[in-house]
């Protein structure tokens, strides 16, 4: 495992020097979605809760950066702390209310919250620019240079992975999974799941905010679409495509999704059709994600969160 990781790290570190300009753009996009997917999976893997509201954290951070840069002329990088705070606050509110619910009710409530935020961004012309968005946010220096942005995203991915690793191995991680697998028993032995689940939601949302920040640095703009439910759907697709049970599954899913999209789009306008076919095949034939194609040992699916 160690050697594999080391090889992967070296490859990723020298990768940009062998890519043409467009390949580099695709690589950045894949890394940013990878950060988002890893963060999302922190919640999903450890609690079994399927959030349809992560677009809210992602977009809240993105809009915070965009607004601070465009309205208050902050320097781009300086907005990062506040962007993360915004994502954390949004996650706290959504998480606080939502984790009391389970299964589809949780999913629907997170969806409702993030759609609320979308409606605000979409309607509040004076502040967010409405559907015309906020554009022309060219970050100066490192983040404005494609190679620089690539390395920044790579560092973010390593950082997020490290945090998730620590959480997974921590007592809190074991507690969360115990609650996920058998809430009744966890309760019986005196574990109060609520605080742990809110904490997991907030951490997951905050790290998603990091992805939102990088996304705006990459796109140079922010639009209400960042907050729309399809953004949440995209990250879920990446996670499950890669395999949520595997540590780096979500990141690999993000790479597969982004590269596939770039390739398919350059041949046909029917990308949704192609994606639909891939998802169909995945659900029916290799439910543990693409990562299972490279492994002999089949991992178990994430169990259903019990009612």
């Amino acid at each position: 495992m160690r050697t594999k990781l080391a090889v992967a790290a070296v490859v990723l570190a020298v990768f940009p020097w062998f890519l043409h300009d467009y390949g580099l753009q695709v690589a950045i996009q894949a890394l940013v979605l990878g950060v988002f997917a890893m963060s999302f999976n922190l919640l999903f893997r450890n609690t079994g809760l399927l959030s349809f509201g992560h677009a809210a954290c992602f977009g809240a951070a993105g809009y915070t950066t965009a607004l601070l840069v465009s309205k208050l002329r902050w320097s781009f990088a300086a907005t990062l702390p506040l962007a993360l705070v915004a994502a954390a606050l949004v996650a706290l509110v959504i998480g606080f209310f939502s984790v009391r619910l389970t299964k589809i009710y949780f999913t629907m409530l997170t969806l409702a919250f993030s759609q609320m935020l979308w409606a605000v961004a979409h309607k509040w012309y004076g502040f967010t620019g409405g559907d015309n968005g906020i554009t022309g946010l060219l970050p100066p220096g490192l983040l404005g240079n494609p190679k620089g942005l690539y390395y920044a995203s790579l560092v973010a991915l390593v950082l997020v992975s490290g945090i998730i690793y620590i959480v997974r191995r921590s007592p809190a991680g074991y507690t969360l999974r115990a609650v996920r697998d058998n809430p009744a028993r966890a309760e019986a032995i005196g574990i109060s799941a609520f605080e742990y689940m809110v904490a997991a939601f907030v951490l997951s949302g905050t790290l998603s905010g990091l992805a939102g920040f990088l996304h705006v640095a990459w796109q140079h703009s922010a639009f209400p679409d960042l907050l729309y439910w399809t953004t949440s759907a995209e990250v879920i697709i990446a996670v499950i495509l890669g395999g949520s049970a595997e540590f780096f599954g979500p990141a690999i899913g993000a790479v597969v999704l982004v590269v596939l999209e770039a390739v398919v789009r350059s041949h046909t306008q029917y990308w949704p059709l192609a994606l639909g076919m891939v998802l169909l095949a995945m659900v029916l034939f290799f439910p543990s994600g693409v990562i299972s194609l490279f492994q002999r040992r089949q991992r178990e699916e994430v169990p259903r969160a019990a009612a």
Binding site: L50, I240, P272, G276, M277, L280, V283, V302
Partner: peptide
Amino acid sequence: RAEHYQILLTYALLLI
């Protein structure tokens, strides 16, 4: 199967 597979499958149908 778990809910997220059902959601993913029906989402795939939506796209198709």
